[in-house]
Computed example of a mutant assay.
Amino acid sequence: MVVRVRVEPALLRWAVDRAGWTEETIAQRAPRLDAWLADNARPTLKQLERFAHSTHTPLGLLFLSEPPDEPMPIPDMRTLGNRAITRPSVDLLDTIYACQSRQDWYRDYATNNGLPGVEFVGSADVSDSPERVATQVRSALKFDLPQRAAFNTWEEALRKLIDRIEGIGILVMVSGIVGSDTHRTLNPEEFRGFALVDSNAPLIFINGADTKAAQIFTMVHELAHVWLGESALSDAPMARHTENAAELWCNQVAAEVLVPLASIRHEYRGQLSVSELERLARTYRVSTLVILKRLHDAHFLAWDEYQARYEVELERVIAALTERRGSSGGGNYYYTQPIRLSRQFARAVIADTFEGKTPYRDAYHLLGTKKHQTFQNLVAEIGAA
């Protein structure tokens, strides 16, 4: 006997909207959805399980009487026309939940092992001078222009910046997908990063689907949120005004850390071309979009001209990124996974597991693997054996 279940139509529609499905996706993955919504037919339990899996919805939620309230778990600093963006995607929510779970584990680990708190968390305020705080950040990271000049590629600059941020006690996770699921790509147009602030386990997550140069700016922007002592979800807007004081301040700090105003005024040759933007971007190891913003800040570009040039440059950057993605392979799991997890976090989990304090089953879950051999290979890659 086939068991069919009734589900409130509002819950089915909520699950589809939450997953961001288009009409085409619905037709492919849930062709009988219209009949279920109209209550002309009911799904079998197996059909409902497949639907829950496809929409990344916990099955139990589909048996509620109405859609649950699912607020953003951290302060949302993203804006669209100075209005808050109200509907987060399931990919974004699952990413935040996973990072919160890892942060909770690491907080307990730090406490149990007597690790000191991170002293600069919450040490600044939006009333502080962005230039003064930028000097503090550059000093803490040792990421000034002479140090950056030694990096040959964006990827090397990003890796070194990650290492230096982790070296001052902050977990840094960079990923362009949800967990280890390569079919769930994060959308940089939805968010670029977030900070989960904690005095013992501060954490920064960067959307790895963005360009390497853009990730560098976002990382320092989120680092500024840690200095403020405020968790935040950000899109780090540069081409539009924001009324959010914290976002504006964090942008100013990040821009001054990476491209000091006095320096760009001296370095700029006065001819705004693609080659000049790329030269300056290579010099400072940031995106050409950040260079445009600093040229505006230095009064070389009026606001209207800056916005127009920003849109043109953004299209060029996106086209180049799309072309590179189309020609690149999937990458090496054992090379990318430690970056997705945070090397500092992964080393702590592995060490705690080898000491018998964290069960292997829990370690597999925290590290995003299901097999012992994969765990062992990660140990070899991270060098934590």
Score class of each variant (00 low, 15 high):
W249V: 06
W249L: 09
W249G: 07
C250T: 11
N251K: 12
Q252M: 05
Q252E: 14
V253F: 00
V253I: 10
V253A: 03
A254T: 02
E256G: 05
V259H: 00
V259N: 01
V259Y: 02
P260V: 06
L261T: 07
I264G: 04
I264F: 00
R265T: 04
Y268M: 00
R269D: 09
G270D: 02
Q271H: 11
L272S: 04
L272E: 04
L272P: 09
E276F: 06
E276A: 11
E276H: 01
E278V: 02
E278N: 11
R279L: 01
L280S: 01
L280I: 02
A281G: 11
R282I: 00
R282S: 05
V286A: 02
T288V: 14
T288M: 08
L292A: 05
R294Q: 14
L295S: 04
H296N: 04
D297T: 03
A298T: 00
H299E: 09
H299M: 06
H299D: 11
F300V: 06
F300W: 11
L301V: 07
L301Q: 10
W303F: 13
Y306Q: 10
Y310Q: 09
E311W: 02
L314Q: 14
E315Q: 15
R316C: 03
R316I: 03
I318A: 11
A319R: 12
A319H: 07
L321Q: 13
E323V: 06
R324N: 13
S327Y: 11
S327H: 13
G329N: 08
G329R: 12
G330E: 14
Y334K: 06
Y335K: 12
Y335S: 12
I339A: 08
I339M: 13
I339R: 12
I339K: 11
R340G: 14
R340H: 14
S342W: 11
S342E: 07
R343S: 06
F345K: 10
R347M: 09
R347H: 02
R347G: 09
A348H: 02
I350E: 01
A351N: 11
A351R: 14
D352K: 08
D352R: 12
D352C: 00
F354H: 12
K357G: 00
P359A: 05
R361V: 01
Y364G: 13
